[in-house]
């Protein structure tokens, strides 16, 4: 499939074309998703807030999907949220076993896909109150959630 594209985009050709254009480097400002991931790597869970309409924006975007403003700032979140819906991805034990997958409504408004990890995957319930932590999934930093009713107050 798409062998012709692979040919046009061979690493050598791409490198030669980029080298030829090396003086045309544009702004090096990273995109919002990159900034989000950099914050996670520092252990910080930040989302965007629109300076014009005041609403929060997640996932990270160039513009506010509520009002269209491009004037967004990064803010810390309370970390509090509740489970909007939940499921269990069934997986053989040798592949890592079952894991939870939940939609979490953040106190600030946005909803995000994540996992509740301190409760058995099938014991997570809709409406359960949870708290955000920056953890690791498969060696990548990720926001995960704990059920705060179990006594964890790290947020």
């Amino acid at each position: 499939m798409l062998k012709s594209f692979a040919c046009h985009q061979s690493p050598e050709v791409k490198e030669a074309v980029l080298d030829n254009n090396k003086n045309n480097t544009a702004s090096a400002v990273p995109g919002p998703l990159h900034i989000y991931e950099e914050n996670l790597a520092k252990g910080e869970f930040k989302i965007q807030q629109c300076k014009d309409c005041g609403q929060h924006v997640f996932y990270p975007r160039y513009l506010c999907h509520h009002c269209g403003s491009t004037d967004l700032k990064w803010v810390a979140v309370s970390g509090r949220g509740s489970v909007y819906s939940t499921s269990v991805v069934r997986q053989r034990p040798e592949k890592g076993g079952d894991y939870n997958l939940s939609l979490i409504d953040l106190e600030e408004g946005p909803r995000m896909l994540s996992r509740v990890i301190d409760v058995a995957p099938d014991e997570v319930t809709i409406g359960m109150e949870v708290s955000a932590h920056v953890g690791m999934i498969n060696d990548l930093p990720a926001v995960v959630f704990y059920n705060k009713e179990q006594g964890n107050k790290e947020w």
Binding site: L33, Y36, Y59, P60, V89, Y99, L101, M112, L113, S114, R115, I137, N138, L140, A142
Partner: peptide, 10 residues
Amino acid sequence: HTVEDVYRPR
């Protein structure tokens, strides 16, 4: 290429 990939939704 989204923020959700890391959670491995099936």
